[in-house]
Design a protein around this nucleic acid. Structure first.
Lengths: 356, 356
DNA sequence: CTGAAAGCGCTTACAG
DNA sequence: CTGAAAGCGCTTACAG
């Protein structure tokens, strides 16, 4: 029986050295690929290593070199297509540069985010990419910097932190989407987000702690204001966190004395839930109500009608974040910057013309 | 300026010991949470650690203890909802038991799978969960076992390996789905998978190297055979790897002299592509053609009609795989087993009654 | 209850 | 070109 379930002492440089009849230092040189060794001896060592199935212990290597070769990534929820695409971009970039990625979910909860950052720092990641749940709760991120660990913010920006951030052009995206609806004659427009909030009501736009959502809402409100529409925040709703909550949000929106005729969904999960809510209420899109969703998610192109979306190019965002972090890890001198990936509005069939 | 971008020597037990005016051993005891220390000294050390923002170096800890606290997971493609749900199940289970997860994608390519396994073993993961791309190429998996690293197979089984495997009840699932179509009067049924194959044609069912796909095809064929239908493999197609390929597969299927009237998609990505192909050909489901897809993916419930699916309960599969691996890591004595999670067919609107 | 030493498996200077 | 020693930051026996 050659296989074994019992944990085993693994093969080390010392074992290989002994088998190859050379010193540990020499074996280490060829196995680690550093220093100079004669061809003859190299062959001996390589042969011995192969025979013993030697595999370098990266943990030990990290201990000596001080680099773990690991990039830590903290996202809201990897199940969300936005984040899984982003992570794919980061991972592809990382792999190219020889890094491995560890992903942690925060569920957009501050305490989980803090634990995740702690865990990752403990593992001595070479750098960190974080989607901060709240841009006004940043002690743990300051600590990351103090620990000397390169940090790149993803999707959300925190100017006070003086750190790189890769985001979308959220304000412009919201402006384009809202304008598209206004131009089609809509006068009562709703904005729906999954962000948690007391009562699902908007207290003060300036205090929305997720900068991406804040900027989108600002863009949304700006267009409505410019169009001379009254009370632009009247239909802004947070808290569409799951299907029942979303059903509730949509139902209340539609039972308004003057219900909205168009709706902007802050992400594709919210969009999907809103779509299902409308469907279950027997409303037809875009005849009864128009909608636009962020993100070119799978489902948006197979519905009837297909959904007009804001294409966020998240994969590129991920790649850029990875690239930037790696540059930081490699100590390339750069000033802290907000890098924006611009979006485009993809017109499909979910916005109807209304009014006179 | 308290922040810093420059890499820094991090705070160690020695630093804390000095600050607390105790020996390294004592500081290590309280910081590591082992051994016995008087309350007074413990307080001193804790205070010093807090002041210095000490964080244990898990790498060093792993070196000493021989456990990394990391579980490695190799999947086909984390973008695929099947795998991302599974990974979520594994991660939830892992976190509960205090493990971190590193995910690697193989893209269903053997060489990438081998590199991923190598990388993970190098990082000294405490255990490995692998979705083997080919159940007949297992040298690298034997090596994993020889290295003494616990291994659990996911979604696919390799009996020769004598190792745990968590799978669905693929044969039964295919039987149920196929039977559902046959009972509705369908006589020409197609099976479409993304598995790569020369020419997209099926050579020999027994030699399909992905055991899940093989068992599904076997179940599919079994039902057709029992129903007395001629040439049951005639409409079995592989190679629906992307949209153009799938368009091609579907187009060729439909240009058969006797085209199929119903179609079973091997996973939700294939299902989505097939749906789009049919849509672009102007075919209406289920009037012109019926379909069933594996996996309860997002998109399947918002199409018109909603798609009948095989609910695979992947999250449970992931949790079970994680649980089993952790039991192995903790050396609980168990015999190698295939653990099956059973599926259910969820009837929606994509299968029509045909014939007399 | 506290301390000094050895060791985990590598890499990094320093000698020869 | 090869070797012997020290060190990375912990934990694990072993003494006192």
């Amino acid at each position: 029986m050659e296989d074994s379930a019992a944990p085993k002492r693994s093969v080390t440089v010392a074992d290989v050295a002994k088998a190859a009849k050379v010193s540990k230092a020499t074996a280490a040189r060829v196995l680690g690929g550093y220093g100079v060794v004669s061809d003859k001896i190299r062959d001996q060592v390589v042969a011995a290593a192969a025979a013993l199935e030697y595999r370098p212990n990266e943990l030990a290597r990290s201990m000596s070199t001080g680099r773990s070769g690991i990039i830590g990534v903290v996202v809201g929820d990897i199940q969300n297509a936005f984040f899984s695409l982003a992570v794919r971009g980061i991972s592809d970039m990382a792999r190219l540069a020889g890094f491995t990625v560890i992903i942690a979910n925060s569920g957009e909860q501050l305490d989980a985010e803090i634990s995740a950052v702690d865990l990752l720092i403990g593992k001595r990641v070479d750098g960190l990419i974080v989607t901060p749940a709240h841009c006004d709760r940043i002690d743990h991120l300051r600590q990351v910097r103090r620990a000397g660990v390169p940090l790149v913010l993803f999707d959300r920006n925190i100017p006070e932190l003086e750190v790189d951030a890769v985001t979308g052009d959220d304000r412009e995206a919201a402006i384009a989407a809202t304008r598209c609806m206004v131009e089609q004659g809509h006068r009562r427009l709703a904005y729906v987000s999954a962000m948690e909030a007391e009562g699902g009501k908007l207290a003060d736009i300036g205090r929305i702690s997720n900068s991406a959502v804040r900027e989108r809402v600002e863009g949304f409100v700006q267009v409505l204001t410019e169009a001379g529409l009254p009370n632009p925040v009247h239909y802004v709703r947070l808290g569409a966190t799951d299907q029942p909550q979303t059903d509730d949000v949509v139902k209340r929106l539609l039972s308004d004395s003057a219900p909205p005729t168009a709706l902007l969904a802050s992400d594709s999960l919210v969009g999907l839930r809103v779509f299902k809510s409308l469907q279950s209420l027997g409303l037809s899109i875009p005849k009864d109500i128009s909608m636009i969703s962020f993100l070119d998610a799978d489902w948006t192109s197979v519905t009837v009608p297909p959904i007009t979306i804001v294409d966020q190019r998240v994969y590129e965002m991920g790649k850029l974040a990875g690239e930037r972090l790696i540059a930081r890890i490699e100590q390339i001198p750069l000033t802290a910057e907000r890098l924006q990936i611009n979006t485009t509005l993809v017109m499909r069939g979910s916005v109807a013309r209304v009014g006179p």
